[in-house]
């Protein structure tokens, strides 16, 4: 890329253009080309095969289970995530730093280990007598674990910025705590909750590692869509694997788009 060929509103110097060219080339070879090839592979055998894959009973069940589990976990996160953020920002209690650490563990813990860890408490040897192995709840539990931080971490900064004056004003004018929360606090938090929910849903749909050990992967019962891709890959059915993958990619892209719009709203609100 030569500086002279760039459009007028570019401020790139010559070394900067070279750096940009190399970065974009590397990014394309590592990320864009491989992902584009997934789309190509899914379309290679035509629309009928693509659609046939997604509507295959076992695959359709896997997709449905993944979407349901991700949606259910996201719904739980919207409530409990907001509550956790509220407690972290507004309440004072001993052990708060430990709570902070626990919330971020799902971000850092390898998802395969997350599955193993959950299996020790909610598997066949559960000291609680709860065994989710081989049930649809295992997918829900896995997704619930890995998506825990998203809503908390998007709501928290907005809550910190939120002026308590307005709440106090509402209360001094006779509004109950509940009314104040519903009419004053919640509207301000909604964009952040929605943004966190989007991230949580996108992550939940794509979760693979945590499902591997925890769910038992029983076809039509506890098998998630990403696991289905793996089994297609193991039988060398690349086109079918790609079809399910493209579906997951579309969900991820939609989520990014929605998140982009919502985070703009959050920033505007914070201003």
């Amino acid at each position: 890329m030569r500086a002279s060929t760039l459009k007028p509103h570019s401020t790139l110097t010559r070394p900067a253009s070279v750096a940009l060219g190399v970065s974009v080339l590397w990014f394309s070879l590592l990320v864009l080309l491989p992902l584009a090839l997934v789309v190509v592979a899914s379309a290679e055998d035509g629309w009928a095969v693509f659609w046939g894959t997604l509507t295959n009973t076992q695959t359709a069940n896997a997709i449905q289970l993944t979407l349901t589990a991700a949606a259910a976990a996201t719904a739980v996160n919207m409530v409990i995530g907001t509550l956790i953020a509220w407690v972290l920002v507004r309440d004072r209690f001993p052990g708060k730093r430990l709570v902070e650490l626990l919330i971020d563990i799902p971000f850092a813990l390898p998802s395969l280990v997350a599955g193993l860890v959950l299996l020790s408490l909610y598997g066949p040897n559960s000291p609680l007598g709860i065994n989710v192995l081989g049930t649809p709840y295992s997918v829900f539990l896995a997704v619930l674990f890995v998506t825990l931080p998203f809503v908390v971490r998007t709501v928290e900064p907005v809550l910190i910025e939120l002026d308590t004056d307005v709440e106090q004003a509402a209360e001094s004018l006779g509004a109950s705590r509940v009314t104040t929360f519903r009419r004053v606090v919640l509207p301000a938090l909604t964009p952040a909750i929605a943004a966190g929910a989007t991230l949580s849903f996108a992550r939940g749909v794509g979760e693979f590692g945590a499902l591997t050990l925890l769910t038992g992967n029983r076809p039509n019962v506890s098998e998630g869509a990403p696991i289905r891709i793996q089994s297609y890959l193991e039988t060398d059915n690349t086109a079918a694997a790609a079809a399910v993958a493209v579906f997951l990619l579309l969900v991820a892209l939609t989520a990014i788009g929605v998140f982009d719009v919502l985070s703009r709203k959050v920033t505007r609100h914070a201003d």
Partner: peptide, 17 residues
């Protein structure tokens, strides 16, 4: 994009390339 794509899809994509 890389953090939003399912890891199994990343594997498939790299395999295809």
């Amino acid at each position: 994009l890389p953090t939003s794509v399912s890891p199994i899809v990343v594997g498939l994509a790299l395999l295809l390339a």
